[in-house]
Design a protein around this nucleic acid. Sequence first.
DNA 1: ACTAATATTCAACGATCGTTGAATATCTGC
DNA 2: GCAGATATTCAACGATCGTTGAATATTAGT
Lengths: 219, 219
Amino acid sequence: MAVRQKAEQRQQTRNRILDAAEELFAQRGYEGVSVRQIMRQAGADVSLAYYHFKSKRDLFDQVMLRRVETLNDLRLQALEAVERRHPDDAPTVEEIIGAFTSPLLDLLATEHEDWTHYFQLIAQINSSPEWGGELMTRYFDPLVSRFIEALRKALPDVSEADLYWSYHFLSGALTLTFAETGRIDNLSGGICRSSDMRAISKRMPHFLAAGFRALASRD
Amino acid sequence: MAVRQKAEQRQQTRNRILDAAEELFAQRGYEGVSVRQIMRQAGADVSLAYYHFKSKRDLFDQVMLRRVETLNDLRLQALEAVERRHPDDAPTVEEIIGAFTSPLLDLLATEHEDWTHYFQLIAQINSSPEWGGELMTRYFDPLVSRFIEALRKALPDVSEADLYWSYHFLSGALTLTFAETGRIDNLSGGICRSSDMRAISKRMPHFLAAGFRALASRD
DNA sequence: ACTAATATTCAACGATCGTTGAATATCTGC
DNA sequence: GCAGATATTCAACGATCGTTGAATATTAGT
């Protein structure tokens, strides 16, 4: 009974390792975690990591790759849904930014355990001089270019430089928010909570869209 | 001749170690750098690190502390200068945000080598779940609260939650921008450069001030 | 049932880690 | 110029690092 136990369990073990690596990398960074700590958390022997992955760096890359396609697909679908609702005119900046951010909020709302560490990891990579420039470009550039194209249509008079800088500010606000460091909890004395996704979705698109428009409509 | 050579050289060596640590921590993070690598770059023996500092962690803390007071002072002075120009009414949001950001731009313009690694380091800490919440609070909370107080006066109808979330988005945009990861250079195909402080100072305060106002004037 | 393939464990490698105590060089105060 | 303080070097500690090869357990194909 139970045909193909081996292939099933292979993926199961592989995912257990990826889960442990994702969580620990997100908490302490790539260099702050050892393969031994990852495998201890995964409940398996150290050398099993090198049976399933080529190296520590390869394990890290697979952690990144595992979810990036799902995320990019959801974002692209959200953008296309918004564009479908505007067959003649262009969508608003809010709608486009909403399509960029709401998949993250939805994933956290429905599958929080699975995605929270992944977003924290991306946040750290994004602001790291060593990894940020290259890795973010590699994984997200096509999708981001697609969103920037949509934003260009929504803001016909914006200059290219203003457009890219606006996106850069968006990216910073977004990644820090999803890093959930607890900073805003401390600073606000409990008024705001890092994990309050409803509070974020009510505010972030408005805040950022206003910024885009402010730069686009400058003299 | 040369009275007090020893005391002078003590500070000189100490600063050489701090410089090396600052640069390497900024590039690869706390765990990504060894004390040996730091001392190699500083051109001194490993054990000298433990003569000048208690531990690796203490060295890291001193790297943080060395510049934080200067930075906070400059920001506070900039804010007070803005407020002095408005004896009766409140300063604008742009002016307040300018006081928060322009000291960073000025330091990079005049003493780039000294400060660029420090800002990169802060950017990484800010979006790290392990360090971000606590360290940023410890070093910057009093100053940030002072700025938020000024912003509250400039936006009399804003809710507390909107105010703190707005600052959070500002903080994300600010730290990613000063992380200078080269991401925007890649994404924009060279149109924008991470190191172009003039481009940043022309855009960031406008962008962020518009965001603050958008949240403050919501129904 | 037997064999080949796959999955997992065991033991160890050389390298590097943070840290320390003792020895040595250099300067200061008298 | 000498004694004591200060700064720097040398050598080493046990622990942990990433990684590997060989041995063992488990499953798959026939």
